[in-house]
């Protein structure tokens, strides 16, 4: 442990030791066991388990739906953030406080209520069904659930940036004769990009691993509406521990890469805005 900054302060050994102990017991060792379990398969077997057609279909749905959901989040998130920051209207504070509902609401409750809303007899499904749109038990249902759980990420990333944006720049652009549209596109938008991207990545990462809300609203049909985490549970329930571990390692690798990407993004963002 080289170069401590504040040598006077005590407790480095104690706190660091405790941190590493808990981290090892709760996170690292179980993760290591998962890794070992997956590596017990031969390389060919691992590859086979990780890339069965059913697994590929599950990845496709997981990534496709997560991407779609994160895109919905980005578009609506940017709009909502803009409205919440720039306009004053009755109920603004209330809506602002409600944005975090998906963070606080248990995913099972979210899944339950979304499934009941979008089922063909539900408050919303009733209007969509005649149009041939089925929100529940379809790929669309997966997107709906994922968009719900990921919604706060973009709004909460973009809001502070929008808040701190220097309005003078916009005024300058306006006085120089730029139309409002042009000002927003060329002055405001570029400074929002990093925050928007971070929010998008956070929502996407969350969506990849989401389980609770999706199992209620998706049909869990192999090849069609089965997401990767559901397939892991299926593999486990079929006594196929190796298969479950292989899929889990793939998912874990992806989440880990995303996490590193997000950390880089956040560092870039904070440098960008400081």
């Amino acid at each position: 442990m080289a170069g401590r900054k504040f040598n006077v302060l005590p407790g480095f050994g104690l706190t660091m030791g405790f941190t590493l102990l808990v981290l090892s017991l709760v996170v690292l060792i179980p993760m290591g066991v998962l890794w070992v379990r997956a590596m017990e398969l031969s390389w060919g077997e691992f590859w086979h388990q990780a890339t069965t057609p059913r697994a590929l279909a599950a990845y496709r749905l997981t990534f496709g739906a997560s991407l779609a959901a994160a895109t919905v989040n980005a578009v609506f998130g940017a709009m909502v953030a803009w409205v919440l920051v720039r306009y004053d209207f009755a109920g603004r504070r209330f809506l602002d406080a409600l944005i975090d509902v998906p963070f606080a609401l248990p995913t099972a409750v979210a899944g339950l209520t979304l499934a009941s809303l979008f089922s063909d007899q539900g408050w919303l499904g009733r209007w969509l069904a005649p149009l041939g749109v089925h929100g529940a038990y379809s790929g669309l249902g997966v997107v709906i659930a994922l968009a719900f759980v990921g919604q706060p990420f973009v709004i909460r990333s973009v809001q502070p940036v929008l808040q701190n944006l220097d309005r003078e720049l916009e005024e300058v652009a306006a006085t120089l004769g730029a139309g409002r549209c042009r000002t927003v596109c060329q002055v405001v938008a570029p400074s929002l990009w990093p925050a928007l991207l971070t929010g998008f990545a956070l929502a996407f990462a969350r969506a990849i691993g989401e389980y609770g809300s999706v199992v209620f609203i998706s049909g869990n049909l192999p090849y069609r509406t089965e997401i990767a985490p559901v397939l892991i549970v299926m593999r486990l329930d079929e006594y196929n521990y190796g298969g479950a571990a292989a899929l889990a390692v793939v998912l874990l690798g992806i989440s880990f890469s995303l996490l590193i990407l997000i950390n880089l993004l956040e560092r870039w963002t904070s440098r960008y805005y400081s």
Binding site: S119, G219, N220, L221
Partner: peptide
């Protein structure tokens, strides 16, 4: 259209969700 994990889930799907 839906594969539930157990018979009870399937019954719920058919009767309560009307699918």
């Amino acid at each position: 259209p839906i594969l539930d994990t157990g018979a009870r889930g399937a019954t719920t799907t058919f009767v309560q969700r009307g699918i």
